[in-house]
Design a binder for these strands. Structure first.
Length: 476
RNA sequence: GCCGCCAUCGUCUAGUGGCUUAGGACGUCAGGUUCUCAACCUGAAAAUCGCGGGUUCGAUUCCCGCUGGCGGUACCA
């Protein structure tokens, strides 16, 4: 059996790893693991104008955050490197000129303004916008002289007749009429390859067996197929998965949906939950499970089962899944995650005590602090004006002071008895106490929270409120 | 404009010619539980399977057309 070698080829042109790339990476990674193959990362940094400094590092570290580890890559090397296209320029040049030599490509000296005008005219006439072949038929010997002094590109010489067909593992055979395939630029005038040349040369040299990428590449695949053919190289298996969509069904974009991996991290999503959610896009567990481990995904995944429909990214469902993962997390591990999420600003011991109270109340790590701030800081503002409850608070203090065992069950029992004696509804009674102690209307269970905070702190908080001259100014 | 891909509840999906009065999940709504909020439990609403033709004894499932959505159409990837 052929060795499976797959890759993702992100471009360092954004601020981080795009969630769509995470999706593609997941599929490639899982497919590689399933087939005991290799998963490779190659950086396609051939667009010098859009290059973002530091983006490559971000991409790589985000991949690591997801624990999508790779066997070969720009930072760890590998047998078929380098894995950064900017370090492979001589290779592309070599093959581009080889194609020219074989008559499958040609030098082109057209400038962009002529090209733009040409396209505009074609558009107006209702024709496809393709290069008109101005330089296609120039005498090769003359062109060869011109390239010494003039700026030039190398274009693919696409046959004018026939069709180019390739088989897509997910979609079946896809064919394009050659006359509608553009004479694509392969080598830019700055000496860098375009994606189309780079991807074919590298995929071949790196012995990529399966090209698994998003749907947006379908229409350029025939160009790639032609290059493979001209160079006499064996075709990889092509599989074009769905493209992730915004809720309005357009291609997932940063304008309409969070797309950077770092955003999800900052929001306190867990990497495993995100991956699980992504796995549900275009694929479903054979037993209909919604929650499954990555190993289970590897066991059950089949590339052919991937759907071709572009799924809308649903943050609400992701949040639900993330909540499920939080509930499944061991308390001690969750404690550490929250501790680190909050930049280690709050004591671990205290966080640890609160975990059982909040575990099923948070969906993201970022939900923790708004719910639990009062454990770490004295309340500054009060979400409800409880000034009129001063006398009730005084009675509460009296009861609490008499307690010699500071346990949630005892606190709760005592408070319930008091509420009953005073004929105050439990809901009202506890809300007064809740706001007095925490400042918040929404908190973890109150009796347990009071136990954690300790008798001294609770009493001082309530007393402070009673003695305050004009507490209303702190009410928000 | 031109080329291509796709089409089941609001969303993610199951379904591969009769087992389907189309199943599950998220969300929504109602009820239960309850010191708030969650979590949990129960229940409900929600897709005439985009539309129109075929093929067939029988189509969500096969074929064609249309429509719609999306993608591509760059010396961006």
């Amino acid at each position: 059996m052929q060795t499976v070698r797959v890759r993702i080829a992100p471009s360092p042109t954004g601020s981080d790893l795009h969630i769509g790339n995470v999706y593609t990476a997941l599929i490639n990674f899982v497919f590689a693991k399933k087939n005991r193959g290799k998963f490779i990362v190659r950086i396609e940094d051939t667009d010098r104008t859009r290059l973002v400094k530091g983006a490559e590092g971000k991409i790589l570290s985000s991949l690591k955050w997801f624990n999508i580890y790779y066997d070969e890559g720009p930072d760890i090397g590998g047998p078929l490197g380098p894995y950064r296209q900017s370090e492979r320029l001589s290779l592309y040049k070599k093959y581009a000129h080889k194609l020219v030599g074989k008559g499958n490509a040609y030098y082109c000296f057209c400038n962009s303004s002529r090209l733009n005008q040409m396209r505009k005219r074609q558009m107006e006439k209702g024709q496809p916008t393709l290069y008109d072949g101005f330089c296609r038929h120039s005498d090769p010997r003359i062109s060869a002289k011109r390239i010494i002094k003039e700026k030039f590109v190398i274009r693919l010489k696409v046959p004018r007749q026939g069709t180019t067909v390739f088989n897509d593992l997910i979609r079946g055979p896809i064919s394009f009429a050659n006359k509608l395939i553009d004479d694509q630029v392969l080598l830019k005038s700055d000496g860098y390859p375009t994606y189309h040349l780079g991807v074919v040369v590298d995929d071949h040299l790196m012995e990529i067996s399966h090209v698994i990428r998003a749907e947006e590449w379908i229409s350029s695949t025939p160009k790639h197929v032609l290059i493979y053919k001209f160079l006499g190289w064996q075709l990889p298996v092509f599989a074009h998965g769905p493209i992730l969509r915004n809720p309005d069904k357009s291609k997932l974009s940063k304008r309409k949906n969070p797309v950077w991996a770092s955003w999800y991290k900052e929001q306190g999503f867990l990497p495993e939950a995100i991956l699980n959610y992504l796995a549900l896009m275009g694929w479903s567990h054979p037993e209909g499970k919604d929650i499954f481990s990555r190993q289970e995904l590897i066991d059950k995944f089949r590339l052919e089962d991937l759907k071709a429909v572009g799924p809308a990214f649903d943050l609400v469902k992701l949040e639900w899944l993330n909540g499920e993962y939080i509930r499944q997390t061991q308390n001690s591990k969750l404690k550490t995650q929250i501790y680190e999420f909050l930049d280690k600003k709050y004591p671990q011991e205290l966080i640890s005590k609160t975990i059982p109270l909040i575990k099923e109340r948070i969906k993201k790590l970022s939900d923790y602090l708004p719910l639990c701030r009062f454990f770490f800081e004295e309340p500054e503002n009060y979400e409800w004006d409880i000034i009129s409850y001063r006398s009730l608070l005084s009675k509460i203090v009296l009861q609490l002071e008499n307690l010699n065992q500071w346990k949630s069950a005892i606190i709760g029992q005592t408070m319930k008895v008091l509420a009953e004696k005073l004929k105050i509804k439990n809901s009202e009674f506890f809300m007064v106490l809740r706001v007095a102690v925490t400042g918040q209307k929404v908190t973890p269970p109150l009796n347990e929270s009071m136990e954690i905070l300790g008798k001294e702190k609770i009493l001082s908080r309530i007393k402070k409120l009673i003695n305050e001259k004009n507490p209303s100014h702190r009410h928000q």
